[in-house]
């Protein structure tokens, strides 16, 4: 695996970390006041997909593994989370946890298989495995086939907070997102994260330094799957719906697109990318099949001319300016 996928610096100064934390605080600040201007359900959708994209970015951005099947974790967690709440009467937080756990278990099983191949084959293996999960969801009884699981009750979060109200639920989702984002940030900046980046940059060397590369890859894969599951289960409660759309290969493609547009291997890129793509989908909802064409077109433009993504380009511009001064 060459280094061309991402161009981020491998080690960060304390100053850079502080800047990231400040930026994170600003982001959450914006999140806190955003419902004044924007519809909470839309914001929750952005947050769920931002979390999904951050989970995906953990693999492509920091380990150099392109998963083309992340919808399987997102979609399956939405199904099992939604089902446990609706059919077994789980409380919302338990349903979300259960969905996350199922995402992690699926991540462990598929990860064990997928990490046996590298690069381009890894992408094909994950895509094929997610298609298998798609067919399973299509045929299994509990998923409700083409109808999906509808009218999932939201109930009370932790038995106290009434999340039937959209605005209240929005703040709960914001808290979930903030927690998961900090977890990713902490992981990326930990010694564990440094080893992941070493694997991305030069896998043979990481092996020769004595790291059990496969264990690291598998751990990162399971963590990414679990977080994608967290995003999926939360999404199921937000829309009170889990459907086949969430498990399709198109959904896997969408999360790739979000991360690519925002900037692979940047900590905020996926968040920006998710916001951009979801907003675009909202505006283009009336154009039907053209949405697919436009998404494909964005893919082509970004890959051809704009590979660092929005946040990556801004970071570049910032470093250049700082170097000049």
């Amino acid at each position: 695996m060459s280094t061309a996928v991402t161009a981020t610096v491998t080690s960060k100064s304390a100053g850079a970390k502080n800047r990231e934390l400040i930026a994170f605080a600003v982001l959450i600040g914006i999140g806190l006041v955003a419902p004044i201007a924007i519809y909470p359900v839309f914001l929750m959708k952005v947050l769920c997909f931002a979390l999904f994209a951050c989970a995906f970015n953990l693999l492509i951005g920091y380990v150099g593994l392109l998963s083309f099947g992340h919808a399987m974790f997102f979609g399956l967690a939405a199904y099992v989370g939604g089902y446990s709440v609706k059919a077994w009467g789980f409380s919302p937080e338990l349903g979300i946890l259960y969905g996350t756990a199922c995402g992690a278990v699926l991540g462990l099983v598929t990860g064990l298989l997928a990490i046996r191949r590298q690069g381009i084959y890894f992408a094909m293996v994950t895509l094929a495995l997610s298609q298998m999960v798609f067919f399973y969801c299509l045929q299994a009884k509990f998923t409700g086939g083409e109808d999906g699981i509808q009218a999932i009750p939201r109930g009370h979060f932790l038995g106290l907070i009434n999340i039937q109200d959209d605005l209240t639920f929005y703040y709960v989702v914001l808290a979930i997102f903030a927690g998961a984002f900090l977890l990713i940030w902490r992981t990326v900046n930990s010694p564990f994260g440094q080893v992941l980046k070493a694997i991305r940059e030069n896998e043979p060397r990481a092996i020769s330094l004595g790291y059990r590369v496969d264990h690291y890859k598998l751990m990162a894969f399971v963590l990414s799957a679990a977080l994608a599951g967290l995003a999926g289960a939360t999404k199921a409660l937000v829309f009170q719906l889990a459907s086949l759309t969430d498990v399709t290969w198109q959904m896997s493609g969408e999360v790739v697109l979000m991360t690519l547009v925002g900037g692979m291997g940047t900590i905020f890129g996926p968040v920006v990318g998710a916001a951009v793509i979801i907003t675009m989908q909202n505006y283009l909802a009336g154009f039907g099949e053209w949405v697919l064409v436009i998404q494909g077109f964005i893919f082509v433009v970004v890959v051809m001319a704009f590979r660092k993504g929005i946040v990556g380009e801004i970071q570049d511009w910032w470093t250049k300016r700082a170097n000049k001064a």
Binding site: L66, V293, Q295
Partner: peptide
Amino acid sequence: LLLTFGLALMIEG
């Protein structure tokens, strides 16, 4: 892979 994926989406759409 990403480029050809985007092109596939465009053509299919």
